[in-house]
């Protein structure tokens, strides 16, 4: 299986094709509804976000609390579509990769092509399994949001599938009939 280290290089992103399985290692930042709303607002007002968005990977996730002796609780992807209205602004600001679940809007797909980014799918509803691929967790911003805060996570061989590639190839557009 294809192994990649984050942040992704331009040519690595270009080579990815929808449907391909990849293991990711490196740093990702969690952000979901509330954090996206704040980040989009900051971008609009030309203020500095709490983390540099340049080349980062965003993971749409709100982890469960870390049990004793475990790095993190259950931590799977949330529905990406709720972030769609904020995503073009974030891609314009330098975000290169997103990890989530489900389909995206046309606007998001167009922005992915425009900014040469990539959208990955993580196995949905497998938060327990994915928590074992996370080796570090650090609170970065908006602690008061609880599970919606921004966390910096270090992942190791985190399993994803390319959902939308940088040319606009979309895994959900090639829906097959049951065999």
């Amino acid at each position: 299986m294809n192994k990649l280290t984050l942040p992704l290089k331009k040519e690595e992103i270009r080579a990815l094709k929808a449907g391909q399985s990849v293991l990711l290692s490196g740093i990702v930042y969690t952000a979901r509804d509330a954090a996206h709303k704040i980040l989009a607002e900051l971008i609009k007002n030309r203020k500095k976000p709490p983390v540099s968005l340049k080349n980062i990977t965003i993971y749409y996730a709100g982890p469960a609390p870390s049990p004793r002796n475990q790095v993190i609780g259950s931590c799977g992807p949330t529905t990406s579509a709720r972030m769609d209205i904020f995503t073009p602004a974030l891609l314009r600001s330098g975000v290169k990769a997103m990890i989530g679940k489900g389909r995206r809007s046309k606007e998001v797909k167009d922005s992915i092509i425009k900014y040469k980014a990539v959208y990955f799918l993580a196995p949905a509803g497998c938060g327990a399994l994915l928590s074992k691929k996370i080796t570090k967790k650090k609170m970065v911003a908006y602690k008061n949001l609880g599970p919606e805060a921004i966390y910096e996570l270090e992942v190791k061989d985190f399993p994803v599938i390319v959902g939308i590639d940088s040319k606009g190839g979309d895994i959900f557009k090639k829906r097959r009939r049951p065999r």
Binding site: A61, G62, P63, A64, P67, Q70, G73, S74, C75, G76, T78, G125, C126, G127, A128, L129, S131, K132, P147
Partner: peptide, 12 residues
């Protein structure tokens, strides 16, 4: 894994 580690099946 959830059952063995006594963690939630899903973070939600």
């Amino acid at each position: 894994i959830a059952s063995k580690n006594r963690i939630a099946i899903c973070q939600d």
